[in-house]
Design a protein around this nucleic acid. Sequence first.
RNA 1: GCGGGGAUGGCCCAGUGGUACGGCGGUAGCCUGCUAAGCUAUUACUCUUCGAGUACGAGGGUUCGAAUCCCUCUCCCCGCGCCA
Length: 446
Amino acid sequence: MIDVKKLRENPAPYYESCEIRGYGKDIIDKFLDLDNQWKDALKKRNVLNHERNVLSREVSSLIKRGTDASQILSKVRELKNEIAQVEDSLRRLEIKREEAASAIPNLLHSSVPRCKGDENNKLVRYYGTARVFSEDIAYFKKNSGGSNDYDMLGKRPLSHVDLEAKLGLVDLKRAGKIAGSRFYFLKDRLLKLELALVNFAVDFLSERGFTIVEPPFMINRRSLEGSTDMETFNDAIYKVENEDLYLIATSEHPIASMLQDEILNEDELPIRVGGLSPCFRKEAGSHGKDTKGIFRVHQFYKVEQFVFCKEDDSWDFLEEILANAEEIYKILQIPYRVVNVCSGELSVLNAKKYDIEGWFPSQGKFRELVSASNNTDFQGRSLSIRWRSSDGNKIVNTLNSTAIATTRTMVAIMENYQLEDGSGFRIPKALWPYTGFESIALDDQS
RNA sequence: GCGGGGAUGGCCCAGUGGUACGGCGGUAGCCUGCUAAGCUAUUACUCUUCGAGUACGAGGGUUCGAAUCCCUCUCCCCGCGCCA
């Protein structure tokens, strides 16, 4: 949630931020209106409560002296009715005001490109040597900032779907039978590759000062609402029936809410947390996109970076977690580009977001592998996570970034490391110690 | 799942119907010949500063008045049961 006090004092930047993101300004007007109504009702309630307290104290002293208090008592009874009514409307206003407030997006960083649509994201840099099918070269050049770091392919590599089928690594049909589309059985060496990726990423973060955790895979409504936005809530989140529990869509949510309602000491910050968890996503609203294979699925493992820090440090940390994520894909030797995501595509939480998009030779496209966001104090305020400073408690800033999302990274490996004859794919060298094998192919022995 | 005990401000803790005691720690000031002690104020949240209101795990109820009595729920501790 945004800082309501700041908004009241100086609404101009909030109007501007709303407009740049493509929201109507009336989001803010609506809030301010409700806020005023709420304040009036609150004032009214306080005055009445005060009256009641004063009278109640009188009753107390009268009774102590043994005097009759029945006159005052009847007055108080009337007051109680009035208070009940005011409280009722106050409660309703409170809920509406809260809803209106949480719809107001975070203030944007000045470097965020101002526009709508993924195609308007601003290229930050390209890294690697991509394998590009001849027909995709124009697209590749256009989207890599005119890079010449590529090797041309005479034919298009197999899609990961075809390759998996050929190698018997994924059973989509039976998963569909028992759970539906976008589910899968991962098999044999592909499962071992997944475990290898997880272990590699966990070690990577552990070596860089992250405390690694496995969070609860389900969290309650308050924690989820505090850590995410309504759009994610509606499009991604599975609810557990008859329980106040929701399956997590990313370990960002339990990690962010892990410190909810706490007040940290200054010397505890910054806190770097690396989370490993399955991620459960409904993928509502993505019908027809990436329907085959394991590119877009209802569950996958993800190793996530999360940082709690002071306001002054958060922009440096955004660069740090982005650099970490980039290093991972450099080590895995997967060509990628970094984009600065434009205002119209950010969630209400994000002040700024970078995506790392890997090159997928079979698709002939850059596709998202990583999102690295600075949510400044937006998430911290919703979750009431503060730190003690010499001039009062301050809201912590929070940031998060993917390290590795397993399924997509495996697809990237299958496409970028594919053998020329389409009989399999090699494993990135950095993973060999984790997999114990160097390739997955038709002629595998085990 | 059963039985017992708990949850009070950053931390510790008192308080069984009359409006939350005290300590520690933090901050500010005073004093002090000094890495100390003492004194004073302040140290949850909200509203407009005074001031007022709210807050004793959460939500209801009884009452003029609830941390305190009643009901429901959550979490923690101990024991029993069950279980990977």
